[in-house]
Design a protein around this nucleic acid. Structure first.
Length: 568
RNA sequence: CAGAAUAUAGUUCAGAUGGCUAGAACGUACGCCCUGGGAGCGUAAGGUCACAGGUUCGAGUCCUGUUAUUCUGACCA
């Protein structure tokens, strides 16, 4: 492609509404433009890169035995009502009425659609297992789109769904997709991590997220420093904390803590570390109340609590309820004398001489000891891990960091086949629900994550497999016939050899072209300039390296092929 | 959804206390010059000052409302 013939509007200035580096560079390099908040157009350069990624995904999915299809972007609300997910999506669902006043939605995902399709067409175990996938736009009305294409209202997703006869077969499909994902991300040159994840509103039991560690990522991952344990924040479990047997329990003592309702205030006032304090929170679930105890420096993980209580509808109790149950204003709740059920985090059970709320205004109680001074009905892991926690597998240090979620795989089980009635007849002629799995990849996020980790102050550094063009030819002087002729000749030669080449045939000064070249980040640059006249050589420079190599025009193809091999 | 900020040329921004024909840089067009890191000179085009009301002799500037965008948090299959 000749630069003058395509459409790559680069920008010298940083757009004012871009915050993270990948977003800035995607706009500056002419890959994308914003149409509206969280809605982006992909320009030719961005589209080419997107196509490189989808090609890799297709090749690997096809190799795994998955079959591509194409589902509609529109779906009737009735399907989401059947699966019960209309509430789970809530305001994130973009829905409307068609002319017949029928409710339809722009699909946020396709579990229901594919299950409905398969239920009508698959009726025998002989048709299973089956893995179907598509690469398609998804719509979610994000409350707060941000970071460019990392969180947008419309995004490209590769979603796959597996259909199996039983759990063993599902495990097989799941492993196949897991391995395929690893290969896809490896081919994209990403340093990814597969972490244990919570299944959230998706349902199912086992789930892994494919993450790229990055400070701008919205997810939090915990990773063990020495063993292979890693999990996302919702799921990560701390190693149990051991009790300190050297401390002798003292007798409880009431202290006045006027107007001090937060852990920090009480901790500062009493001069006691927050990890020697107990946070008592009243939760409501299924019309019942429960007191939840975590250490002062810990936070309740509602996903875990929800599982412990076996309830989907848990929430902090309102103020009146707290006052009624504790006989005190909010901020002074404590476990002593409470009539409700008490659930404590494991870390609370081993505390000695700790501080709790007094269930009385402006009062806390010191030197409190669990079991001795109050009863714990149930101890469990109900908190988020922190940097001070240890690995549950090997007890070494857990590192907590942010990550960008690129892929997510779920063992769904029969959640959707049950609610939508997708059944098959097994060998014995017995009707059974199809066992399903679901597997997603955020295609746009692969671009953003790649740029996040692969750029410098001048612009993007594309890895060869994703680069919009593999080679960029920069003739230094548009008006010099020798230079332009040579540039055009090697351009034709590289194109004929099947190398994706861009020729910067614009009448611009060299500095201008070099800046653009660095900005859009083509991996290999050939400069045709004064050296051609002096020694008859061309210059080859890799975007990722400082060195410059020289080659005669007649050897350029072999030289380029050599460099391309080194980049693969 | 809560809190906050912003909205002026294609882009990035200036435009105290209200005052004449709304500016700069970059970009764009044309000309000159130049051709190894966004060089220089000149000329020109380019504006519903987000929108709607209001106060005022007079509003880009003050007030009210609306909308949009961004940030922080909540939420997030």
């Amino acid at each position: 492609m000749k630069w003058s013939q395509t459409f790559i509007p680069t920008l010298k200035e940083t757009p004012s509404d871009a915050e993270v580096e990948s977003h800035k560079l995607m706009i500056r390099s002419g890959m994308i433009r914003k149409l509206s908040a969280g809605i982006y157009s992909y320009l030719p350069l961005g589209t080419k890169i997107l196509n490189k990624v989808t090609t890799i995904i297709r090749e690997e999915m096809d190799k795994s035995g998955a079959i591509e299809l194409s589902l509609p972007a529109l779906q009737p609300l009735t399907l989401l009502e059947l699966s019960g997910r209309i509430d789970a999506f809530g305001d994130d669902l973009l829905s409307m009425k068609d002319r017949h006043k029928k409710g339809i939605a722009l699909s946020p995902t396709h579990e229901e659609v594919i299950t409905d399709l398969v239920k009508n067409e698959v009726s025998s175990y002989k048709q299973l297992p089956l893995i179907l996938y598509q690469i398609q736009t998804k719509f979610r009305d994000e409350a707060r789109p941000r970071f460019g294409v990392l969180r947008s209202k419309e995004f490209l997703m590769k979603d796959a769904y597996s259909f199996d006869t039983d759990d063993d077969s599902l495990n097989n499909s799941y492993q196949k997709m897991y391995d395929t994902y690893c290969r896809i991300f490896e081919r994209c040159k990403l340093d990814f991590l597969a972490v244990e994840a919570d299944t959230g509103a998706m349902g199912g039991d086992v789930s892994h997220e494919f993450m790229v560690p990055n400070e701008n990522g919205e997810d939090v991952i915990a990773k063990c420093r020495s063993c292979d344990y890693s999990a996302n924040r919702e799921k990560a479990e701390p190693s149990p904390i051991e009790s300190d047997d050297n401390v002798t329990p003292d007798d409880p003592k009431e202290v006045s803590t006027p107007n001090m309702t937060t852990i920090k205030e009480v901790s500062n006032f009493l001069g006691i570390e927050s990890n020697k304090m107990v946070k008592t929170l009243i939760y409501t679930y299924d019309n019942k109340h429960v007191a939840v105890l975590v250490r002062g420096d810990h936070d309740v993980n509602e996903a875990k609590l929800s599982k412990v209580l076996s309830s989907d509808e848990i929430a902090l109790a309102n103020e009146e309820t707290v006052v009624e149950l504790t006989n005190a204003p909010v901020g002074f709740a404590g476990p002593i004398g409470l009539k409700t059920q008490i659930i404590a985090d494991q870390a609370v059970t081993v505390l000695k001489n700790c501080v709790v709320g007094g269930n009385k205004a402006d009062t806390h109680i010191m030197n409190v000891n669990p079991d001795k001074d109050f009863k714990i009905d149930r101890a469990a892991d109900i908190r988020f891990v922190t940097e001070n926690d240890r690995c549950p597998k090997c007890n070494d240090v857990l590192d907590i960091s942010n990550g960008i979620e690129l892929g997510h795989v779920f063992k769904l089980g029969t959640r959707y086949s049950d609610s939508l009635g997708a059944k098959f007849l097994d060998k014995n002629g017995k009707e059974r629900p199809i066992v399903m799995g679901s597997y997603g990849i955020g295609v746009n996020r692969i671009l953003a994550a790649t740029i996040e980790k692969s750029h410098d102050s001048n612009g993007i550094i594309w890895p060869l497999p994703l680069a919009p063009y593999e080679v960029l030819i920069v003739p230094i002087n548009f008006k010099d016939e020798t230079i332009m002729d040579t540039a055009t000749k090697i351009y034709d030669e590289l194109c004929d050899a099947g190398i994706d080449t861009l020729l910067d045939d614009r009448d611009q000064r060299p500095g201008f072209k070099f800046k653009d070249a660095d900005l859009i980040g083509i991996p290999i640059r050939i400069t045709v300039g004064k050296r051609l006249k002096e020694t008859g050589e061309l210059e080859i420079k890799l975007r990722s390296k400082e060195e410059v190599y020289y080659a005669k025009p007649e050897n350029i193809l072999t030289e380029i092929v050599k460099h391309m091999d080194s980049l693969r």
